[in-house]
Design a protein around this nucleic acid. Structure first.
Lengths: 159, 159
DNA sequence: GGTCGATCCATTGACGCCCATTGATACCCA
DNA sequence: TGGGTATCAATGGGCGTCAATGGATCGACC
């Protein structure tokens, strides 16, 4: 398996540590990144996390702007400045920074959600409501498309 | 690791000393530069800092202008003339010059922000507001560009 | 002789690293 | 097929190391 899939709910311990799900760890190991690269999601109250694949995605985004341009510098500041590379201990755990926890509203438990090249870390309650909203959106979209109770998209349409 | 990454908030002591984050120090050591090369950032109320890699970047910037041109001389004056090479003490600390502190509005605490080949030193409050502004820009730009794997925003999605 | 600065030392608190426990799941064998 | 066992993921805690910080001493240059 080379993609992050499925979701898992886990708790932070007294020291603020939280285990990365074992299946995600094996993906990270395959990816070759030492540690866990994290930053606050731009459009959601969640943490985006991953390895080299995620990092490459971000750098590709930055490289779309010419060197020394104002936009590029703002991208660099905003993405690098808010990101954190967390160390993974021998048991596969990380401690989230205060910034990350504040952005996602995380206190003592989280949900890991696999999204292919990356995964997200949510505060469980917020994830539930986000999921409900997303599901409602999907329903209205499929209705509007006029494809009731059929698969909305063929496999691999968007990666 | 051979690049400056992540960010750290630290305080100046009564003597004006401030520790360079250990991870940054190890990059500087690898870079081989003795001390810390600093200058006021051109476009921001921050201090640019680094080692040989930063110096090389600056020279590359200057070399984009024809020799003896007005622009080139102004770049040289502006960059070299305002720069300072700070001494790093046995504990990995530096004292910022008054010029640098004035430019960045630094009094008794700072934030170090890794930006790859260099890092920046900010006054925490200004960094926060700058980050907020940059992030807003990034949001609108990524929407316009059509970020990969961002969710579709259907019109009329109720909130 | 005094002040400023630089090098050295001492404290403390966080973090990395290690091991122990528990609970669930998969596997094996009767 | 059911029971027992081995394996591994998740969790909790202890301890040592080192980064960050504060203070003290030594020296140089006014």
């Amino acid at each position: 398996m080379d993609r992050f899939v499925s979701n898992t709910a886990l708790r932070l311990d007294a020291k603020g540590r939280v285990s990365i799900p074992a299946s995600f760890r094996s993906v990270l190991a395959r990816d070759g990144f030492d540690g866990l690269y994290c930053y606050p999601a731009l459009d959601q109250e969640a943490i985006d996390a991953g390895g080299n694949a995620l990092l490459a995605e971000i750098e590709a985004l930055i490289d779309r702007f010419p060197p020394y341009s104002q936009e590029r510098e703002e991208f660099r500041i905003s993405l690098y400045g808010r990101s954190a590379t967390l160390k993974i201990d021998g048991e596969g755990r990380v401690v989230l920074t205060d910034d990350l926890k504040a952005h996602a509203g995380i206190s003592d438990s989280v949900v890991f959600v696999g999204l292919g090249q990356k995964f997200q870390i949510w505060e469980p309650q917020r994830f539930r409501s986000h999921l409900a909203k997303a599901t409602a959106t999907v329903r209205t979209l499929t209705r509007r498309l006029g494809t009731p109770r059929s698969e909305p998209q063929p496999e691999g349409a968007r990666e």
